[in-house]
Design a binder for these strands. Structure first.
Lengths: 128, 128
DNA sequence: GGTTGACGTTCCAGTCACTGGAACCCCTAT
DNA sequence: ATAGGGGTTCCAGTGACTGGAACGTCAACC
C-alpha cells in the first residue's frame, strides 16, 4: 500500500510517517517509480508507534520498544522496566501540573475579576 | 546590576534572560561597554516571567500578562480570564496524562515481567 | 493520446523555549 | 602584564513534528 492508505490505517499523518522513516524507525520498500510501498509489517510498526507515542513514550523509547518488539527472545521484564520508568515520569508530570493548578487556582480565587485595576494574580506573580 | 546578578536574583539562567530580551519581553539598559544593566523594574519583570513560566504559561501568554501588568488601567477581569483559560488547559493536560497512566498501568499489570519473551505490553501496543 | 487532479516525492524552513558552544571583549586583582 | 571570571554576539541543535515549494506519477475521463 502507498503512504496515503498507510496513513489512514495507522491514523498517522503522512508527514509523520516520512519523518519516522527519516529517523530510521521504519524502512518501507519502494516501487520502481519511487513511491513508498508499505507492507502489513510496516503498518503494524506504525500502529505500534502511534500507540506508544500516544502514551507519551519519547521517540527514543519507541525505538527501544520496537527493538524489543522485533527481538523474539526478549525478556518481558525488559519491556516492563521501560514501561514502569515511563509510568513514574507520567506520575511526576501529573504531580507537577497539579501543583501548578493549585497555585494558579489560589491566585484566581483571590482575584475579584471586575473592572478594577488591582489584581492579586499579577501581584502574586511578581512578588519576590 | 549586570546579567549574572540578575540571573541569580531572578533564578533564571543568563541564556534565558538574553533570549527574553531577544524576543522583546524585557529591554534592559546598556552600559557604555555594552554590558546589560538591569534595573529593579527589569528584575521584577524577570521574576514575574519566571513564575508565570513555572506555572506553565506560554511565552505569548506571558507577553500578554506583562502588558496587563504594565497597564495601570487594566481590569482585573482581563487577567482572570487568561488565568482561567490556562487553568482549563492544565486540567485537560492532567486528564490526558491520567488516561495515559491508566492504560499503561493496565498493560504493566498484565505483564508477568520475567525472562519469557511473551509480553502483554508489546502485544497491547501493536494490536489494531 | 492529452489533460486534469489527486496523490506521491524531496528538501528547506519554521515551530517552542530554550541550550550549548565558539570566538571574542571587558573588568578587576594580583 | 597577566590571569581569571565575567560579559558580548552569533550560529546551531534540541524533539517531534508541520508547512510549503517545486516537482514527479498515476488513474480516469474525453
Amino acid at each position: 500500500m502507498n503512504i496515503g492508505e498507510a496513513s489512514d490505517r495507522a491514523g498517522l499523518p503522512a508527514k509523520t510517517i516520512r519523518y519516522y522513516e527519516d529517523i530510521g524507525l521504519i524502512t518501507p520498500a519502494r516501487t520502481d517509480s519511487g513511491y513508498r510501498d508499505f507492507s502489513d509489517t510496516d503498518l503494524h510498526r506504525l500502529i505500534f508507534l502511534g500507540r506508544a507515542r500516544g502514551l507519551g513514550f519519547t521517540i527514543e523509547e519507541c525505538r527501544a520498544l520496537l527493538q524489543l518488539y522485533d527481538d523474539k527472545s526478549r525478556a518481558s521484564a525488559d519491556v516492563k522496566r521501560i514501561a514502569q520508568q515511563h509510568l513514574v515520569q507520567i506520575g511526576e508530570k501529573i504531580a507537577e501540573l497539579e501543583a501548578m493548578r493549585a497555585t494558579l487556582s489560589d491566585l484566581v480565587d483571590a482575584c475579584h475579576g471586575d473592572h478594577r485595576p488591582d489584581c492579586p494574580i499579577l501581584t502574586g506573580l511578581s512578588r519576590s
